[in-house]
Design a protein around this nucleic acid. Structure first.
Lengths: 235, 235, 235, 235
DNA sequence: CATGAATGAGTGTTCATTCAT
DNA sequence: CATGAATGAACACTCATTCAT
């Protein structure tokens, strides 16, 4: 491509451009780790810088303050899979039960098993100290996410696969266990003996079963219950 | 006044004893509020003292450090209704579905609707900074609580009311939504517009329904579904 | 001891009251010295505290910020001799020449020879960085001071002792050399070899002569020229 | 154009030579502005560089440190009109009163109305932090300047136009109001409402009158008083 | 027992200075 | 020669903790 010729790899502009992205990226990653691990206040900016391999001064070259760094961390990890997921929902043509299974599976792959799983803990811990961020998170994450799940449930109801329900609260039943799982992983599980460990595969399988058929004896799952299989237990 | 006679004003020992209990009580209450609201690090001991109506120096008369104050706050609010609950389970003789309903209802009354609902947020936020507290919480709350729920589920399975399941993960399905609810109330819900508000009654009803029958169309609840009714929507 | 009896050691309130005044007083004195000596920016709050015999933290107990400390320093030294001076002018009944002599003499005694002489340097150096303070100074010091001198000049004109003149600029002729003297003392004179030293008595005598009779040969002073004699060259 | 021919574009040496002079010139000008405006400490080298249209790094190519930059600024603007003035004095053959008038007029034209008028403020503000500069200023400016004025006064005395006086302090009477004027312009006048403005022409006229004849009624100026007229009230 | 003045280690932030490109 | 990213020493300010009264 002729255009590429202009910005030859040795082209200083390109290199600088990459820098501009690279350095903050490492800082944001380090900051996410530490904020999740210790909370906002207990995290020292110098530690963030050190972990990112730069000096304290450099951090302030990219983020005007600790608060802005925090906001950037949250925003960074929200860019979102919503567009992709929305697409997938649109084009899915299996049963709604399968859809729900895919939903949990995809959440684990793209959120639960990644660093992004630390964000909910961050938000829950700090939302009251950063109300502006709380609003941002509600608008950018909670609402779109709820909407996606609501579409799945609505589809199931429409197709006669799910029974009628209050969609808003039905959505919570899908999301609450997921969010609880990610918070657990970054709090009690991360600080204690490994006996506390939740195995995501079992956990999500159980959730799927429960969501579909509940615990009552009569409502046992048919043999063709969607089977959830996670690719990797991560990290 | 006969009651006053017991704690006779000239009885210095008695007075001091009461004091020792009374003052820390106010301090612990103030501290719980603030720790839940702002997190451990962002809470100033002076603010705690002021809110409790005493001076900063007095606080250190009762708690040797901020850290000990924090630990006391958590310990204090964990005293636990486990003995009572255990008793209730022992003597319950209705269906296991009803038992589950009573369980949610009781949790709301004694935990969810009280200040104790702030503890889970505190633990999730600070467990990694206070691993000792995390262990304590697991031992004193998570395990006994899980055991109680496990007994309910086991009873249902034994009596043929619930289908067989992995008890450990079944318990999570009961507890995760409850813990999520309390965290939500003290984070995003507490910092933003009231549209985010979760109505506990609806939320818990939905959870009960889901737990028992799931979402699938075939497994609709029978007419005698246990109906959950909360006494008061709190505070 | 009779002296101790007055400030009875057991009177906690009285002692505390004195404290409240005493501590800031020492801090303000130390701050004035240092601000005059090194300028606002180059002065370290810790140095101010140390010179006042307290810790850095204590300084912030009395002044919420370095900026407020600076403002307080300027305000403190402005309370002013204006009331007294105004009175003196009112009741003076000698010649206006004598009045002018007394004016210079009094300025030296109460301002020039005291720490207050550092304030003009401070204001000249920092007014552009603290416009609000500049306005305050103009209003509280420059204007009242100019008004006083203007009254003296006007009286002389009215009584036929001084020739008619533009009062506003006449006032500058009285004040400019005084302000220059105080700035000189706190800048070049304070940093260099003693040969630069201006002797206030000679300086002010010369100024008085010039103000009254100028340099021209014809206008020599009569034998009864008011003679200026400073009490002490201070410090 | 013949002049251009000298600095032929292909002559690298010439170009570099010009650069060496040109770039620092802009930097010194920018630095003078900012140092006068905000003081030494509050002036950021980056701001100086930006205002001069170069990068921060470039500034350090020409000046090894902020301190050296400051010293250069002061030195640069002290080059002095002393040779010219000395010449003028030598060749002047009017009255000493006229000489004094020309002196004030020339000071205004070459110092007061130019950026050099900021130097006295700088020296007064920073002399104690840069004693070396203070000494330099005394040697290069104060002493030659005083000597010039002293020559004028001495001439007047010798010719019987001025009355005998202590020359050293007589000189201060000439210089103090001038230095005060330039400090005023760069401090209180520069930060506040325009009502504070001193009109140089009136101010200097008044000073001249006072210097020659004083304020006393008997010593009114003869009709042939030298009349001071400034060419431009600057900027 | 209660106070609140005093402390000083610790933190976020700035900015002169360096140096690889 | 010019740049601007990177540095780290230095500073203003905070706050848990102490202790004399």
């Amino acid at each position: 491509m002729p255009f590429d010729a202009f910005t030859h790899p040795t082209d200083a502009n390109a290199r600088r451009a990459r820098r501009k992205d690279a350095r903050p990226g490492e800082l944001l990653a380090a900051a996410l780790d530490l904020f999740v691990e210790k909370g906002y206040a207990a995290t020292r900016v110098e530690e963030v810088a050190t972990r990112a391999g730069v000096s304290k001064g450099t951090l302030f070259l990219y983020f005007p303050s600790k608060e802005e760094l925090f906001k950037s961390v949250v925003r960074e990890h929200i860019s979102g899979h919503f567009a992709t997921w929305s697409e997938e929902i649109e084009q899915f043509d299996g049963s709604s039960q399968d859809m729900l299974r895919d939903c949990l599976q995809s959440w684990w792959e793209h959120i639960g098993a990644t660093k992004a799983s630390g964000i909910p803990k961050l938000m829950m811990s700090e939302a009251r100290n950063f109300p502006e961020l709380g609003a941002f998170y509600r608008q950018e994450v909670v609402q779109p996410g709820s909407a996606l799940v609501a579409r799945i449930l609505q589809r199931g109801i429409t197709r006669g696969e799910f029974r009628p329900m209050d969609l808003e609260y039905g959505v919570y039943m899908v999301l609450a266990p997921l969010l609880f799982l990610s918070m657990w992983m970054h709090s009690l599980e991360a600080c204690g003996d490994p006996t506390t460990r939740i195995e995501p595969e079992k956990y999500l399988s159980t959730q799927l079963d429960m969501l579909l058929y509940g615990f009552s004896a009569g409502s046992t799952a048919p043999d063709d219950t969607p089977h959830l299989k996670l690719e990797q237990s991560t990290q």
